[in-house]
Design a protein around this nucleic acid. Structure first.
Length: 297
RNA sequence: GCUGAGGUGGUGGAGCGGUCAAUCACAACAGACUGUAAAUCUGUCGUCCGAAAGGGCUACGUAGGUUCAAAUCCUGCCCUCAGCA
């Protein structure tokens, strides 16, 4: 089976950095699995990094006002991975968006069913109880499989209904790659420190200008792209609703909360090889593990 | 110094005699996750015992008082803010 190296972990742990390092050593190319780096014009705030030596795919796939979701990513990534493989190189999937990674490694199948905007608009007016009742009528099995949290999550209920009402059949897709998953993390106080520094760096690099440009280009404050951490906060600063100090403070807070959600997601997986980025030579340890995996028949 | 407003849990901020360990929001902590996923949603959240039901203890600036009962009413004191001097 084709090999795929996967590097995951919370934000600001140096995943791309490690990816570039390994790409050089192992003749690989990187694909970013990040739901916000796909947007053009969102560079500083989403932490895009560029390398002269390693190819990085997956940036700037859409306009911030475009519709973009896992399904688009899945299609893109599968295609890109097979291209890289056909050149005899190692594909390295690098990112912090759990669902996107899962869509590739486990090949999520409901992505074949597209959104139905009309239906969504209609369902959005209903209460979660009504949505649940309706789902229970159409697909009792799915309805009963939902946990207490999802039963009260309108977005998930609407999507479940969308699937239940679609006439397209989903087929279980096979797993396509033999993958090694490397995870990067450290303890929270260490990560928080890195977040702080990363925000300072991004501000110095021109985050305010980047957000100003987006606003001038007509990207609405409520748009999905603008929910990326930091963007709304800085936009509010630009609009005079927050001081710079307040804005960066709130930004740090949302980064922190994002990191925790990412860790909740990744910690659940049992197939991740974790490395502590606070350790001086973790890169070499990763390299060793990866090489062993690569040389295995 | 005088006048007015106010001091509530980690924070903002309700409550204005009993149903108050105190609405709500935020933060914190834990969790969910199959086309919005950096999104969305759930649970916990004074403290102690308990698996739970439930129970104990300490709390609404501070010291007293009134009352069967006070975060809520009265008085002194301390502090904060606004206006006048």
């Amino acid at each position: 089976m084709n090999r795929l190296l996967e590097i995951c972990g919370p934000t600001a742990t140096g995943k791309t950095d490690l990816g570039v390092y390994l790409a050089e050593k192992l003749n690989g190319e990187i694909i970013s699995a990040d739901s916000r780096q796909v947007y053009r014009g969102m560079t500083i705030g989403t932490g895009k990094e560029y390398s002269d030596t390693a190819k990085i795919w997956g940036y700037d796939l859409a306009q911030p006002t475009d519709e973009f979701s896992v399904a688009h990513f899945q299609k893109f990534a599968h295609k890109k991975i097979s291209e890289i493989l056909s050149h005899g190189k190692l594909p390295i999937l690098v990112g912090g968006t759990g669902l996107y990674i899962r869509a590739i490694l486990e090949n999520i199948d409901t992505t074949a069913i597209p959104p139905n905007e009309l239906l969504r608009a209609e369902l959005e007016t209903k209460s979660v109880e009504e949505l649940f009742t309706k789902l229970h009528e159409l697909n009792p099995q799915k309805a009963l499989s939902l946990n207490e949290s999802d039963k009260q999550n309108p977005r998930r209920l609407i999507r479940a209904l969308e699937i239940a009402m679609s006439n397209k059949q989903t087929t279980v897709k096979p797993i396509l790659y033999d993958s090694l998953i490397v995870g990067l993390k450290s303890d929270m106080s260490y990560l928080e420190n890195r977040l702080k520094m990363s925000i300072e760096k991004r501000m110095a690099r021109g985050m305010v200008k980047e957000v100003t440009d987006l606003l001038h280009a007509g990207v609405p404050l409520e748009s999905k792209a603008m929910t990326a951490t930091g963007y709304r906060e800085i936009a509010l600063f630009i609009l005079g609703k927050l001081s710079e100090e307040e804005a960066t403070q709130k930004w740090l807070l949302s980064e922190r909360r994002y990191v925790k959600r990412q860790l909740t997601w990744f910690n659940k997986r049992t197939d991740i090889h974790w490395f502590d980025i606070a350790k001086a030579h973790y890169k070499y340890e990763v390299e060793e593990v990866v090489k062993k995996w690569e040389n295995k028949p």
